[in-house]
Amino acid sequence: MAAGGDHGSPDSYRSPLASRYASPEMCFVFSDRYKFRTWRQLWLWLAEAEQTLGLPITDEQIQEMKSNLENIDFKMAAEEEKRLRHDVMAHVHTFGHCCPKAAGIIHLGATSCYVGDNTDLIILRNALDLLLPKLARVISRLADFAKERASLPTLGFTHFQPAQLTTVGKRCCLWIQDLCMDLQNLKRVRDDLRFRGVKGTTGTQASFLQLFEGDDHKVEQLDKMVTEKAGFKRAFIITGQTYTRKVDIEVLSVLASLGASVHKICTDIRLLANLKEMEEPFEKQQIGSSAMPYKRNPMRSERCCSLARHLMTLVMDPLQTASVQWFERTLDDSANRRICLAEAFLTADTILNTLQNISEGLVVYPKVIERRIRQELPFMATENIIMAMVKAGGSRQDCHEKIRVLSQQAASVVKQEGGDNDLIERIQVDAYFSPIHSQLDHLLDPSSFTGRASQQVQRFLEEEVYPLLKPYESVMKVKAELCL
């Protein structure tokens, strides 16, 4: 049975990233139509530049190519590739079939990587351009969430054990800070992308030097003109047959890092959902379990974690691919890159769409948070109580021993009897502590235990987050809708 299948058929496997999760716009960027249309555009740009620099290419040939950029006979191309065992030459023939007058000058002087690699770089750039505003929107939604809850005390956790208090907004800023680093890295790697350009079979530009009869300047002009037509500021000066596969490492490393950030955020949300302090959106008709109707599973956060793990592992592909590119190139890269580049971007696209949807509907339960604080705060307040007693004339050592005994009794009630923490009640009825009984409410005010959390939130948002989001103001209103 021949390899390949009808990918629109229910009898043929289709990647869930495309069929179930990723956005239509990201799927289109990695589609065959987008790819092969870009090949034709690159052939047109090459012909236009070659004509401008004096090669015998007519206006009629150029116009014929322009008129057929979208006229792609995919069936013919597939048949040609089956016959020739070469995808680029299959599309040269297919393009030439609908451009008979231009057929002889299509791909003039070029090698397969002229269309293959340059198209990949265009796709990487455009895919990054799709991700950047999506990530900015996630940051914006979380920034709104953090600002609104900047002063809401909550129990902090280290080692997932109760620690000092923080605020809900401050905790959210930990998430935002990681995503801001990801946004900066995505922008950097996007701006650092260079075009492969017009380089020939081993990167020496020998074929173009021959076409222009040894004119170095025209060869350099050709490279520059096509690079500018493709919208790049610069091209690699040095290439082998391909652009260095280190570029793929750079791009997928940034995406993998984004995956790590999203995994951490969504894990926190899942843990908070278990504590009943916070939940992701839950639709009115949504079913959490087929057997347990009360369940409210954090399905979206779980999906993000599941896909983020996949995204983090994909960076190993370009690392290994770059390491086995012998001399000017081997074909070890080809099949692998067809999979890992598309999957990385479709996965990143999915987790950003999902995280935006989550961040637009996060639900906080202040009463649950308050109750958990009441359970733990008495123990945390013991040092403040000791200091207040010393100020009232008591002995630190005597007070410490009193607190120690009462704390152990209260802990026994919590752990052995399943009761509430009654340390404060014990202190309130103990005559030894009568000098500070009137101060206990103040000493137990949760806001006095959150330090500068709310001020940190305000400063972080104003100095770091809002300036970073400013270039994306025009796209901030787009909502994230999930079908599944």
Rank of each mutant, 00 (worst) to 15 (best):
H7K: 14
S12A: 12
R14A: 14
L17M: 15
Y21P: 00
F28H: 10
R33L: 12
W39F: 13
W39K: 00
Q41P: 00
W43S: 01
W45N: 13
W45F: 14
W45M: 09
E48D: 01
Q51H: 07
T52G: 12
T52S: 12
L53V: 14
G54P: 01
D59A: 10
Q63N: 14
M65F: 06
I72A: 07
K75S: 11
K82G: 13
V92A: 13
H93C: 15
P100E: 10
K101F: 07
A102N: 05
A102D: 01
A103E: 08
A103L: 10
L108G: 05
G109L: 00
V115M: 05
I123K: 05
L130F: 10
I139H: 04
D144R: 15
D144S: 15
F145K: 04
F145S: 07
K147F: 09
R149N: 11
F157D: 00
P162A: 05
A163C: 04
C172F: 01
C173G: 08
C173E: 02
C180H: 09
N185Q: 10
D192V: 09
R196V: 07
V198P: 06
T201M: 00
T201R: 02
T202L: 07
T204D: 03
A206I: 03
F208P: 03
L209R: 10
V219F: 05
E220T: 11
K224D: 14
E228L: 12
A230D: 02
A230N: 01
G231L: 09
L252D: 06
S257M: 09
S261V: 03
K264R: 12
I265F: 15
N274E: 08
E279F: 03
E283M: 15
K284A: 07
Y294L: 02
R296T: 13
E302K: 04
S306H: 05
A308F: 03
D317R: 02
T321L: 10
T321Q: 12
T321N: 09
R338D: 02
C340F: 13
F345I: 10
F345Q: 05
L346P: 04
T350K: 04
I351T: 13
L355E: 01
N357L: 02
S359C: 10
Y365A: 09
V368L: 05
R374T: 05
P378D: 02
P378Q: 04
A381H: 05
T382C: 09
N384D: 06
I386R: 04
G394I: 12
Q397M: 05
Q397P: 02
D398A: 13
H400E: 03
E401D: 15
S407T: 06
Q408C: 12
S412N: 15
N421V: 12
L423I: 05
I424Q: 14
E425Q: 13
Q428A: 08
D430E: 12
F433H: 07
I436S: 06
L440G: 04
R452S: 12
S454T: 13
E463F: 12
K470Q: 12
K470I: 07
S474G: 15
V478F: 14
A480G: 15
